[in-house]
């Protein structure tokens, strides 16, 4: 009885791991790092775990959880409600469509896949925000943000891979 109970708890804890890790990444990405000239280029780190889990464990991070995570991102950083929800859902959908190709490939292929997807996402975000603002927004900062995002990808993704190998095998 006791064993079954604990087993159930462990299974549910393990299956909620992708969601919790994505949640933590989003909270961390909204932290004020107090680094000079950082606020206009700080990346939406949530895109990395979303890409990762869409490829490796999409069953543990369903659509509606992506929706909620997007709303959370909007609330924290102050984008119009629904903006990052759309961005995250697009990222998830795109990665899900390509998951057969990228799953289990060498790390640099996996990284390249992210950099292509993220570029599309950054451009989409800029277009969406420009439509919202009814003016052409500055694009340069988006490029810097993109470079930062792709730059920190290996760090976060390798951590996620390691955690996945340890807990979700």
């Amino acid at each position: 009885m006791n064993d079954v109970f604990w087993q159930k708890i462990t299974v549910s804890a393990k299956s909620s791991l992708p969601f919790i890790l994505t949640l933590i990444t989003i909270f961390l990405s909204a932290l004020p790092l107090r680094m000079p000239d950082f606020i206009h280029v700080s990346p939406a780190l949530g895109l990395i775990p979303i890409y990762h889990w869409a490829i490796y464990r999409s069953n543990l991070l369903p659509f509606y959880s992506i929706f909620l995570l997007g709303l959370l991102q909007d609330l924290l950083i102050g984008t119009p409600l629904g903006f990052y929800t759309l961005i995250f859902l697009t990222m998830y959908g795109m990665s899900l469509a390509q998951r057969r190709f990228f799953a289990g490939k060498a790390f640099h292929v996996y990284w390249f896949g992210f950099s292509v997807a993220a570029l599309a996402i950054i451009i989409l975000g800029w277009v969406l925000a420009s439509i919202w603002a009814e003016t052409f927004l500055n694009f340069d900062a988006n490029l810097v943000q993109y470079a930062v995002l792709v730059g920190v990808f290996p760090m976060i993704a390798s951590l996620l891979l390691r955690l996945q190998q340890k807990f979700l095998q």
């Binding site: 990405s29 909204a30 932290l31 004020p32 790092l33 107090r34 950082f38 606020i39 206009h40 280029v41 700080s42 990346p43 939406a44 924290l76 950083i77 102050g78 984008t79 903006f83 975000g125 800029w126 925000a129 927004l137 500055n138 900062a141 988006n142 943000q145």
Partner: peptide
């Protein structure tokens, strides 16, 4: 106190 800082190029606000 400023409790959230980062917004990226598409959001310029703090909580």
């Amino acid at each position: 106190r400023v409790v959230t800082g980062a917004g990226g190029p598409l959001a310029s606000s703090f909580l």
